[in-house]
Design a protein around this nucleic acid. Sequence first.
DNA 1: AGTGTATATGTAGGCTGTCTATATATAGAC
DNA 2: GTCTATATATAGACAGCCTACATATACACT
Lengths: 107, 107
Amino acid sequence: MNADALRGHMDALLLSVLEREPLHGYAIIEALRERSGGVLDVPSGTVYPALRRLERAGLLAGEWASDGGRRRRTYRLTDAGREELAGERSAWRSFTTAIGRVLDPLN
Amino acid sequence: MNADALRGHMDALLLSVLEREPLHGYAIIEALRERSGGVLDVPSGTVYPALRRLERAGLLAGEWASDGGRRRRTYRLTDAGREELAGERSAWRSFTTAIGRVLDPLN
DNA sequence: AGTGTATATGTAGGCTGTCTATATATAGAC
DNA sequence: GTCTATATATAGACAGCCTACATATACACT
């Protein structure tokens, strides 16, 4: 998976894995790997700053928790985050349609 | 269309529109707009440097021509460019599959 | 007790491709 | 003579993803 290909789609991915239940960063990385069939292996240096960015934007709400001695920051979708996710899904569809039309060898 | 979303997919788009016939930069921009149903309106400041980059990489071959007093640089796919296009199409399929799985609300 | 691996978060700095804004020049319509 | 379309190109800004590194706990194994 080329790194540049992810540009501009990371937000949608992060919001999407948080749709069903709140998760912390490390669990999000694993969820992305599993749900993509092993294709997406996003480094922590990408995910943690992105989560902070989405929190600053009001799309996620983060909260510190402890499991034994380990600190975790668990993120959940805000209402604004849910709206944003819907918009991202719509944008993804029109994006793939547009690129797909150009790449279609029948053209 | 968000600018970042295109990152990493521009090469595939450019190679793809040149698959059937050689075109010059301006015509490529129009072809992208038409074939995407008006969604892709890529500025010249993106396309011309990208074409040079692909030429340097040996994927395109450019040649100056004149239509009346206007100078045009017409690009055609090289053999390496055709191979690259096949790879880009394959990468596009696995990319959309992976992202689509994560974005799928059924997950 | 010490080593190694998995879990867990985070920062600094680099890279690169896309964008905006600008410049140049010809052709043709009005 | 002016405006728009055609045609190419560069400079510099910007943003986000990356690598590499730093820190710390839990747990298995020796």
